[in-house]
């Protein structure tokens, strides 16, 4: 399984996800510079977290026009597995590969803390290693994670099983109190209709190293490996 980690100017979680893919899971992993134009041969491409282009204009708005993005769009449209984490998720919504938009947190604050997520759909290559309803503890670190989509889009997404993670409390209850950033319907992560593209605000790469106590992020990477070999 060949993995590519795209590096934009300002990416800062690229090394974390590279470490998890390459050293924890032993996957063939390569850097992809934002000026490259090809994603040939990759089985998984990750758009990592960070502050691409300093979040100028809007988070992800300028990275979305990086030279590599034509290849990213072609790769996704061809069914390639594409994971966008945090800033990577912001790039995915800006590029139109995923619906909706990510706005400034309701609290106006940068939020950096572990949160609980309820898995809403295990029928994706990113989540098939666990069951819908599972509760994962994964950290968030963002200022623009407030997911917005109009009611019609939300309805379609619910019907199509595109909502993959929602913020919940430790018991798995999705409520206003467990919503850290004001996201519509507590949405923390979504997929496209084909389920080969996943965007999520929480950082699974920050809790996937076996040396750490919290390892729930491993579910995402294990699922991708399982899906590749099945």
């Amino acid at each position: 399984m060949n993995c590519g980690v795209v590096v934009f100017p300002g990416s800062n979680c690229d090394h974390d996800v590279y470490h998890i893919l390459k050293h924890v899971f032993g996957l063939e992993t390569k850097w992809v510079w934002h000026k490259d134009r090809s994603l040939k041969g990759f089985d998984l491409v990750v758009l990592p977290g960070g502050f691409s282009y300093g979040d100028y204009l809007r988070a992800g708005a300028i990275a979305r026009f990086s030279p590599i993005m034509d290849a990213v769009i072609n790769y996704a449209e061809g069914g390639g597995r594409l994971l966008g984490i945090c800033n990577g998720f912001q790039v995915l919504v800006e590029s139109g590969l995923l619906p909706g938009a990510l706005m400034r947190n309701r609290s106006q604050k940068f939020i950096c803390k572990p949160v609980h997520l309820r898995l809403e759909n295990h029928d994706t290559p990113f989540t098939l290693g666990t069951q819908s309803g599972a509760i994962l503890k994964i950290p968030v670190a963002h200022a623009e994670g407030n997911y917005f989509a109009d009611p019609e889009t939300l309805k379609t997404m619910n019907e199509q099983g595109q909502i993959v993670f929602r913020y919940c409390n430790p018991e798995g209850t999705v409520s206003e109190e467990s919503n850290p950033n004001g996201s519509s319907e507590n949405i923390a992560g979504i997929a496209n209709t084909r389920k080969n593209v996943l965007g999520m605000m929480p950082h699974p790469e920050r809790c996937a190293d076996p040396l750490w106590r919290d390892r729930d992020g491993q579910v995402i990477f294990k699922s991708l490996i399982k899906s590749y070999y099945s």
């Binding site: 708005a61 026009f65 919504v93 800006e94 938009a101 706005m103 917005f148 109009d150």
Partner: peptide, 8 residues
């Protein structure tokens, strides 16, 4: 194309 995100 760039300046506004017409979703919001």
């Amino acid at each position: 194309k760039l300046l506004a995100n017409t979703v919001i």
